[in-house]
Design a protein around this nucleic acid. Structure first.
Lengths: 161, 161
DNA sequence: GGACTTCTACTCGGATAGTGAGTGTCCGAGTCCCGCCGG
DNA sequence: CCGGCGGGACTCGGACACTCACTATCCGAGTAGAAGTCC
């Protein structure tokens, strides 16, 4: 089980865009150059963030991506679900029901209750999601070293010409 | 991102074995029949649980698997790590360092600190793992409907001939 | 000189191949049980 | 009748194909801006 790289990419891109505090959009190629990523594939991931309403895209010359809302309102949970999808990590396939067994009333009633294993796994997953939802991109900005924002802006003015 | 089916299989098998409260080992074929699973592949997963010390295996006729320790001491975390591996779900590939940039002393110092994005993701993952470690197979047994244990035993005596 | 038109270059966006982990299956090594044989 | 022995069947365990999601790439549609042209 491993999380796709797109989440890391998306978060770092959101962080970089947030630091710019700029209305001018940043194209995929620039972001890809900053992080050494394949531009076309990074673009595909940023599209997912657009569909989720986290970024907004501008076509044409001088186009690119920018944050669609302030960093305080972008949680890690938003980015993760935008890129990895809404599905649960643990998916119950109801193997408890697959046994060839006579369907007693007791059994039928039990199978209407949620699977205990699935419930336990879901509880853990909710703790994970809660922790993700509790941290915003703004929190990441605050936790970063002091010079990070300035360096990000310098890098922007250097590469965006 | 999705968790392998083996976790669900492993947990249900542990649960079934725990309910038997029996020293007599249960072969893979029996467990597979109970849950409608491919026997050979289930066996492969149970081997992982043996390597992790959760189950113990007995070869030969009347052989099979049994719990290696009491259900109270088998946590969901144990089963998940046994089957999915010890690696973190989120893996930081340090894309922040990939930009072609002059290596100032400030940068070098910053890159020695852990990546902020990775730290945040790790925090969430620890919450997940903590929740998993807080629940044991015995807890699952307690949370199950009253008749589950008896029915499991009946199914055992019916199929184990 | 100014405004309209055309053209170009640049951007996003979705459709199209390649790859690795996860899934599924098979056969061999080892072990225990049962029946047979000899005492 | 009892103990030892051999055969056989059953089990686990690791080695071998297959599938799907993730990764990666390309090209087309659309747009903004700039250059050129006409009034």
């Amino acid at each position: 089980m491993r999380m796709g790289e797109g989440v890391e990419w998306g978060l770092h891109c959101c962080l970089a865009l947030a630091w710019l505090e700029d209305d001018e959009p940043v194209p995929t190629a620039t972001l890809a150059a900053w992080f050494g990523l394949p531009p076309a594939y990074l673009n595909k991931r940023l599209q997912a963030l657009v569909r989720a309403g986290i970024l907004s895209s501008t076509a044409g010359a001088r186009g690119g991506f920018r944050l669609a809302r302030p960093p305080e309102r972008i949680t890690l949970m938003d980015v993760v679900t935008a890129i990895e999808g809404r599905d649960d990590v643990f998916r119950c396939t109801e193997i408890r029901q697959r046994a060839e067994e006579e369907e007693t009333a007791e059994l039928i009633q039990e199978f209407q209750r949620p699977c205990g294993v699935a419930s336990a796994m879901r509880r853990a997953e909710l703790a994970w999601r809660r922790e993700l939802a509790g941290q915003s991109v703004a929190d990441l900005m605050a936790a970063a070293p002091p010079g990070a924002a300035d360096r990000n802006r310098r890098r922007y003015t250097r590469t965006s010409r």
